[in-house]
């Protein structure tokens, strides 16, 4: 899975905010085409900042961020931690929004939006407004909106952190299924070891103060992964391995602070 061509290379990237806080320092990271990369780390390790840099919502202070493929406007989809939907707009209108901003009419967008809503199991909810939906359903709308432009990379910032475990498992499964079918690249920010091991083929463990890459773990378990993977000994072993690395990363921070 991780032998795709490099898509994005971050070369010694650092970000210091105007208030003097260094969120990221010397980050080297290569995202390959077709990757499902998780950025795992304690809060304050700059994983969300890294995601914003990749999205182009923020500029690096030092270093370079290079896209290796000629990628246009539509290369990035973003899913926020909150569903971040327009509360006054219907489900259809919310998913249509990115296309609408590009000048695609409702009629032209209808087949694409309809198909995506089917993929995230929301057919029949086109006319509902967000407040009529559950937390998990809102997140599904948010994912559909992130994918509606057929982006090359889907950036996800702790998208399932606020959901209950049962809903989260379901969404994890559905996200993997979508990813395997559509072959986009995912950069997934999370603070959950279990989630990152279940989803990704690579985990980038980050450490805090300043935010930096501590280590990388390859998760070699084969796809498709489903609920049986969740209960397998392989999964348990991988989780233990990832946990150990994460603890290392956290301790390294403590050492630096002392």
């Amino acid at each position: 899975m991780s032998d795709g061509a490099p898509l994005l290379v971050m070369n010694n990237v650092g970000k210091t905010f105007s208030n003097g806080v260094t969120a990221l320092d010397g980050v080297n990271l290569t995202i390959r085409e077709g990757d499902f990369v998780s950025l795992l780390g304690p809060s304050g390790c700059g994983k969300s900042t890294a995601l914003r840099l990749i999205a182009g919502l923020s500029m690096p202070t030092t270093g370079r961020l290079e896209w290796r493929k000629a990628v246009g406007d539509d290369c990035v989809g973003f899913v926020f931690q909150e569903p971040t939907l327009l509360p006054w707009a219907s489900v259809f209108d919310n998913v249509w929004l990115p296309l609408r901003l590009r000048g695609v009419s409702r009629k032209e967008a209808a087949p694409v939006v309809g198909e995506l809503l089917e993929r995230v199991h929301l057919s029949g909810f086109e006319n509902a407004v967000p407040r009529e939906l559950s937390g998990g359903m809102k997140m599904r709308v948010s994912i559909a909106r992130g994918l509606v432009t057929k982006p090359r990379v889907l950036l996800m910032d702790e998208p399932f952190a606020a959901l209950d475990e049962i809903t989260r498992f379901k969404l994890n499964n559905d996200l993997l299924e979508l990813w395997q079918d559509e072959r986009f690249t995912v950069v997934f920010v999370t603070h959950s070891v279990f989630e990152s091991v279940f989803l990704s083929n690579r985990i980038v463990v980050m450490a805090a103060r300043p935010g930096r890459v501590h280590d990388e773990i390859a998760i070699d378990a084969a796809y498709p992964r489903d609920d049986s993977f969740r209960t397998s000994p392989d999964y348990a072993a991988l989780c233990r391995q990832a946990s150990d690395v994460l603890v290392e990363a956290i301790n390294s921070t403590r050492g630096a602070a002392a």
């Binding site: 999205a55 182009g56 919502l57 406007d73 973003f78 926020f80 971040t84 327009l86 990115p98 901003l101």
Partner: peptide
């Protein structure tokens, strides 16, 4: 975040 979303989509 919605403002960011609009920026991302070149609004």
């Amino acid at each position: 975040n919605l403002l960011d979303l609009f920026r991302l989509n070149g609004a």
